[in-house]
């Protein structure tokens, strides 16, 4: 079966600084992959490359067997199929929650305004934010904003979700409500790539955990394997540091 997403020897550098140095990974339909690694290891860059927000220098990225990283390819149709949620929520501050969620289905998918709004209201209700639909983003808590950001992506009915440290800007007591949404997505079979510092969550939700170090994937294995029996020395060191910091 063709993998949902295939990264083949992906390279990316900013100027002379090489950030991704040959990333290869296969992601099956409905698989959840968690990328962990220290700050600056290239997690965000990797996800941004998959969303075509950054163009890669070498290698290729396939979605359902189709090369989406070919130079000159129009990125917009691809991005409609791949949702992305960012660390800093980047909701549109001049629009209400409802407008944030219904804008892209209306403008990009060509749904009627009414259709996109009623669909958006359903999504907003599903994420427990019905009473906030007509408020503006800056009137919401961080957790609520992040749930709106997820709803905004889901409104496009994406086949894949990229979640870049979506809880790291949140107060600890707000993390749970956002992670609940991700659990729900998994149970519905969403293919997801997530960058995270929440080891406990990676352990619980990921089918595979991948350790990224200086732009390379050092190892990728099931959470049980990864957290109890890491093979690579760097991974052991990283996990030890995390354990000492009390985050595992």
């Amino acid at each position: 079966m063709t993998p949902k997403i295939l990264l083949d020897d992906v390279h990316k550098s900013f100027g002379t600084r090489s950030v991704l140095k040959g990333i290869s990974i296969e992601v099956a339909q409905s698989e959840v992959i968690a990328f962990i690694g220290s700050s600056g290891s290239g997690k965000s860059t990797l996800l941004r490359c998959v969303n075509l927000l950054e163009s890669i220098d070498d290698g290729a990225i396939f979605l359902d067997g189709v090369d989406i990283s070919a130079p000159g390819l129009n990125p917009d149709p691809v991005r409609q199929r791949i949702g992305m949620v960012f660390q800093s929520f980047n909701l549109f501050p001049h629009m209400t929650v409802l407008q944030n969620v219904s804008l892209a289905p209306h403008k990009v998918l060509g749904q009627s305004k009414k259709e996109s709004e009623s669909h958006a209201r359903e999504l907003i209700a599903r994420l427990g934010l019905s009473d906030r639909a007509d408020g503006y983003p800056d009137q919401l808590s961080g957790g609520q904003q992040q749930r709106v950001a997820i709803a905004r992506s889901l409104a496009m009915n994406p086949e894949v979700m990229l979640l870049d440290e979506i809880t790291s800007a949140l107060d600890p007591e707000l993390v749970g409500e956002v992670l609940d949404v991700v659990r729900e997505l998994k149970s519905n079979g969403m293919t997801m790539l997530l960058a995270t510092h929440e080891m406990g969550f990676a352990k619980e939700i990921a089918d595979r955990v991948c350790f990224l170090h200086e732009g390379q994937i050092l190892e990728c294995s099931s959470p049980a394997e990864f957290f109890t029996n890491p093979t690579h020395q760097r991974t052991q060191q990283f996990l030890q540091r995390v354990t000492e910091a009390g985050r595992l």
Binding site: L53, Q80, F86, S88, N90, V108
Partner: peptide, 18 residues
């Protein structure tokens, strides 16, 4: 206007002009 606004919009599939 911060670059993250552009990234947010483009990641939803909105074109440059949209």
């Amino acid at each position: 206007i911060h670059e993250s606004q552009r990234a947010g919009a483009r990641s939803l599939g909105l074109s440059t002009s949209q």
